[in-house]
Amino acid sequence: MFAFIARRLAQSILVMAVVSAVAFSLFNFVGDPVNNMVGQDATRERRAEIRLQLGLDDPIPVQYVRFVSNMLQGDFGISYRIKQPVDKLILERLPATLELVFVSAIISLIVGIVAGVYTGIHRNSWISRSILSSSLIGVSLPTFIIGIALIYIFAVHLRWLPSSGRAGTIDFGWWKTSLLSLEGWRSILLPAITLSLFQLTMILRLVRAEMMEVMQTDFIKFARARGLSERAINYGHALRNTLVPVITIIGLNIGGLIAFSVITETVFQWPGTGLMFIQAVDFVDVPIMSAYLVFVAILFVIINLVVDLLYAAVDPRIRIGNA
């Protein structure tokens, strides 16, 4: 177990080294940072001075080492545009994104698993068929179109929910939440549903396929032959056996949710890190872009580690030590 985690950590460090190298190269290849910082009319001497201050004249390896060691201390530099430390900016925006991802992950898990189990067991009922055909919409339409359609129906037409922004937040100082007020829930619902649709469809179809396969196995037949009830068979025996592959996909997908949230946050003007990233791209705000890259990579690595540990919890046959 310990060896497993140690090995995984070593692999994670390698991944992070590669990602940080990419993030670092942004500084050198996406425009000239000095040009982005000073006005058009800055003098040649002023530019040289800033170059010296930022250490841009040092050899590349020296700059990289400095970049990494700053990063390790939580210093991601200062935003060119907003002139504030990037780490502070990200931490401020992080709660909005994490809450959005959390709510949409919960929606896609609950709806996806329940509908997947139902359609897996009642294969030919008309409800299953309509769930399956409507779920195709979830995968085939791009996120921003779904988002715009939802805004049109629920915000513009029915006027039930707000069309954009994050309202009703309660501030704890280190965390701003919108999950503790009705207003907050009203504003998070549409973006969360939009974000969840793609994952929901995937989980639904995966659970359904796994469920149908498990129902054909001998141990389900044996459970029937012992006279166990349908409920015990479906939920006690079959469902848990479908979960191992589902967990893998969920792990990858929560990372995907964070990546997709860039689009959803833009459509709904949700003040999270994704929106910040898009704005940073508009203004070539390289420190924010590179910090966002590193931050998403860290999340992916952590989620995958948790997923690997979860396997062992679900399936006793997987001995982590031998992995």
Partner: peptide, 24 residues
Amino acid sequence: MRSIRGDRIGMIFQDPQTALNPLM
């Protein structure tokens, strides 16, 4: 039938590798 299966008529399957739920 469910009250007959298991209670009054038991069944033994061919392959013990697959007849038991691996996760329980």
